[in-house]
């Protein structure tokens, strides 16, 4: 296991490097002059040229890339275009709020999706399963921001049960922080729950078709043993893999939720950067977001290797 972990970690380095190339090339391949785009079409040629000079955009691409990537290991992500602030501390300051919302949302999604999906899978084609299929597909089709708006209006504004928008750091006032967390986390959780539920159902159905489940029955094992040790154990491992592959997609909804509830996470920072067309900020945040997803993928793979003895062989 240790050797496997080291091996995977070692492979992660070229992957991150590849990512930096992809992000860099991809942003520079997009046609149009970024500086012109940032300052608008009305800006004078001299001004644009001056800015290009200032940000080093007039240098060859390779030089720009080397300059950019050499700062990365030290945590230097460059500076923003408008306020000329270092990007790294800006992003870093947003991490606690983003992480808190992501974890809370995932937790709720798991609480909603996992039991219902497992039950639907175990009782395939039962009335519960049909109900689950329709509801989960409807939930799956639900725009996250719409769901959030409805919850916000219903619980936050009409009933005044919960604060509908805003944020207080946990360190400042834990109770208030959690009150503010409820609505965005529930929206995110209810949005993701159906995905997790459908993945769980598919994993359980797949496991149920395995011969070892049938053979476990032939051995006369108790239903509880068969379900726990032969169906769920295997289904959860394959669910973990699917989950790892889709984690990036699952959490992209968070950007919308942060915007909707004025939750000061990294997502809002990125949306603002996009609206302001802050080229450097977009480049840095896409890189950071994607690295985080790659890191989560790696974690999931290691966990998978730990749980499934067949993996390390390859």
């Amino acid at each position: 296991m240790l050797r496997y972990t080291l091996y995977r970690l070692l492979l992660f380095v070229p992957l991150l490097w590849g990512l930096s190339v992809v992000v860099f090339v991809y942003i520079h391949l997009i046609p149009g002059d970024p500086v012109q785009a940032m300052v608008g079409a009305s800006a004078s040629q001299e001004f644009v040229a001056q800015l290009r000079e200032e940000f080093g955009l007039n240098r060859p691409l390779l030089v720009q890339y080397v300059d950019w990537i050499s700062g990365l290991p030290a945590g230097d992500l460059g500076i923003t275009f408008r306020s000329r602030q270092p990007i790294a501390p800006l992003l870093l300051a947003r991490i606690p709020a983003t992480l808190q919302l992501a974890l809370a949302g995932l937790l709720i999604a798991l609480l909603v999706g996992l039991p219902s999906g497992i039950l639907a899978g175990l009782f395939k084609n039962s009335p519960f399963d049909h109900l689950f299929s329709i509801l989960s597909l409807a939930g799956y089709s639900m725009p996250l921001f719409w769901l959030g708006t409805l919850l916000m209006v219903w619980l936050g504004v009409s009933w005044k049960v919960l604060p509908s928008q805003g944020y207080v750091p946990f360190t400042q006032d834990p109770l208030k922080n959690l009150q503010y967390l409820v609505l965005p986390a529930v929206s995110l959780g209810l949005g993701l729950g159906p995905y997790i539920g459908r993945m769980a159902r598919a994993a359980v159905i797949e496991a149920l078709q395995e011969q070892y489940v049938n053979y476990a029955h032939a051995k006369g094992l108790r239903m509880r043993t068969v379900v726990n040790r032969y169906v769920l154990r295997n289904a959860m491992i394959s669910l973990l893999v699917v989950f790892g592959l889709n984690i990036g997609f699952l959490l992209s909804g968070q950007i919308v939720i942060e915007e909707l509830f004025n939750w000061p996470g990294a997502g809002r920072l990125i949306v603002r950067a996009v609206l302001e067309r802050d080229y450097f900020m977009i480049q840095a945040s896409v890189l950071i977001y994607a690295s985080i997803f790659l890191a989560i993928n790696l974690l999931v793979e290691l966990l998978h290797a730990y749980l499934d003895p067949r993996v390390q062989l390859k």
Binding site: L15, V22, I30, G248, S252, I255, V256, D278, Y279, V286
Partner: peptide, 24 residues
């Protein structure tokens, strides 16, 4: 295919945000 895997690791909405940010 490695390239596609990398692009796949970036959530679609994130990719879209990047593109819109640059194109307006």
């Amino acid at each position: 295919m490695r390239l596609m895997d990398l692009l796949f690791a970036i959530p679609a909405l994130m990719v879209a945000l990047g593109v819109v940010g640059l194109l307006g």
